[in-house]
Design a protein around this nucleic acid. Structure first.
Lengths: 103, 103
DNA sequence: TTTTTATACATAGTATTGCTATGCATAGAA
DNA sequence: TTCTATGCATAGCAATACTATGTATAAAAA
């Protein structure tokens, strides 16, 4: 795994607010087991994105447990669009280079 | 850029031996300008791949200039196949997570 | 003729990214 | 009462790629 983790996390949050632990399982499920982030990878990224103003956090107690939920901000939404475009460019460029149908 | 540089370089070398400077331009051309590696990125990768036994180097003088050509080894060919499979897995997983048609 | 540009390889230092390991704390199941 | 799952967090390390810089030569431009 290298790169686009932030893009994937922002995408998950663009659908609905999630808390960290939930993101780990959601990412694993949607990638069919390919991405199983560890907490040590996830939380620093979330803190960093919060510092950038891409996401906002709020605590909520559910079933007697404290969960820190994250929601995407307007700025985060704009960044997500940029990152998705970057990913498409990157992916297509790699495919052009390594693909059988290369120029 | 994050990751798959080695895969792309091995792919180029799987077609024909190339020297470093040539790889820079070839990568840029095939990716339509998306990847413009700098020497400071390329040469350490080549040295590392040589150390792993994925490529072999030999010097050749052409037009009065010394060029260090690299050719892919059998081992490098096997690694390339693995890396291509990894890339496909990674790419598809990212697309599953961020794609509109997500589960 | 001299300067600039392109060619050609190389290393040092730094930033980013993500991993492993570890710590703390609680709810629920065994 | 002990283990497992949940839940957030930081420290330290490894890999990756970038910037900056150095050396050297051929060809083109001034």
């Amino acid at each position: 795994m290298k790169g686009s983790t932030g893009t994937m996390l922002l995408t998950l949050l663009s659908r609905q607010p999630l808390y960290g632990y939930e993101m780990l399982r959601e990412l694993e499920r949607r990638s069919e087991g390919v991405f199983s982030l560890k907490e040590g990878t996830l939380y620093p990224i979330l803190h960093s994105m919060e510092g950038e103003g891409w996401v906002e956090a709020y605590w909520e107690a559910v079933n007697g447990r404290n969960r820190k939920y994250y929601r995407i901000t307007d700025k985060g939404g704009r960044i997500l669009n940029e990152k998705k475009a970057e990913w498409a460019l990157f992916r297509n460029a790699v495919d052009s280079v390594i693909g059988e149908g290369g120029v």
